[in-house]
Every structure is written in C-alpha cells, then in structure tokens.
C-alpha cells in the first residue's frame, strides 16, 4: 500500500494549450505539480486548504483549487493558468489589461487565481452585476487592495468583452505599448 502511494506516475495534460507531461506521486497536489514539475509558477499557493483561492486554475474551463486537486486527477485534462490567458501575440488579455488599468492588484500574489475564477465566471455570466462579481470574488482572499478596484476591473472587462462580441467596439484586446520588450518587466 505504502509502496503504491509513492510509485511515480507520468501525468500528461494540456497546459495553456501545450501538451505537457511529468512524473509525480499519486499524492502530489496539482498545485505542486504545475509549479515545480511544469514550471507554471503563476499558480500561487496561499493556504493549502481551499479558502484563499490563490491557486485557482481552470480545468476543462472550470475554475478549481489546484491545492485541493491531485495531479493525477488532471491526467488528460485541459489546464489553464494565468500564464495562458493572453491571446497569442498579445501581452495581456482584456481582463488582465483592465486589472492593470484599475490598479486591481498590489502584491499580485492572489491575482492569478482571481483571474482564473473571473475567466470561468465571465464565460458563464457575460453581463454580471456588481453584487454578482463580489459574490464570485468572495471565494478569494486579497489582503492588499480592499477589492473595489478588482470589482471595477472585472465590470469593465465584461463590458469590453460584450462590446467586442457585439461588434460595437473595434478596439479589441488591449495592446501593450508600455514597453518595447514586452513580457519582461525588469
């Protein structure tokens, strides 16, 4: 029994659109597997008991706590993390750009998880009210911002996405012109 628990398994999954695989024990948490095996360090671990939400990823499009998920349960699944949110060729997605515009993050540690919950949420709720956004956000703990800027960013992102979907706004996703060496901030 003990031996079986420690026998390494090879897990293959799709991470941010790329087929990836790595070895882990059956007891390895998905958060640890993504961070330390696959290098997705945008997955942050804040509590390891499912309350803080920092480790949230989407699995087949649904937001899930990667600290409460075993890596073996992600075999063959489609996993997305904050690293995979921006459209190809863009630095930031509409949602990410709205977060920057609204100062919706400070230390940024809880942010990747919030972005993943929002991504799932905005797909299900294209036109959310502020109270719906706050309700969704209540699954995440942020100790820096006091939340309001996050709420404003999400509402604005929803409006932008809606307008783009309706073909009213030609602006499309925000292109980052902040730095010429897009992608590396320092």
């Amino acid at each position: 029994m003990k031996k079986l628990a420690h026998a390494p398994h090879t897990i293959a999954l799709r991470l941010n659109g790329v087929e990836r695989s790595g070895e882990c024990e059956p007891r390895t948490l998905l958060s640890d597997f993504l961070r330390y095996r696959l290098g997705a360090t945008g997955v942050h671990v804040g509590c390891e008991h499912g309350v803080c939400g920092a480790c949230t990823v989407t699995i087949d499009g649904a937001a899930q706590r990667s600290c409460l998920t075993l890596a073996v349960a992600a075999e063959g699944r489609d996993v997305t993390t904050a690293e995979g949110l921006a459209p190809v060729g863009e630095q930031l997605s509409v949602l990410q750009a709205a977060f920057r515009r609204h100062h919706a993050l400070q230390c940024g540690y809880c942010t990747p998880g919030i972005l993943m919950s929002c991504t799932d949420f905005l797909k299900r709720e294209a036109n959310p009210s502020e109270s719906q956004v706050r309700e969704m956000l209540s699954g995440h703990l942020c100790r820096c911002t006091g939340y309001t800027n996050i709420v404003n960013a999400i509402l604005e992102a929803a409006a932008t996405i809606n307008a783009a979907t309706a073909g009213k706004d030609p602006a499309g996703p925000e292109v980052d012109s902040q730095r010429s060496d897009a992608g590396s901030d320092v």
């Binding site: 993050l105 990747p112 902040q178």
Partner: peptide
C-alpha cells in the same frame, strides 16, 4: 500612472521567493 509591475504579475511571471 499605471503600474509597471503589473504586466509581469498578471501573466504569472512574478518572481516571488518560491519561484
């Protein structure tokens, strides 16, 4: 001004101690 830190942090490219 917008924060220069944010592009990295929003895309999972922060450099925290455990990263």
């Amino acid at each position: 001004l917008e924060r220069r830190e944010d592009a990295a942090l929003l895309t999972g490219n922060g450099r925290y101690a455990d990263d």
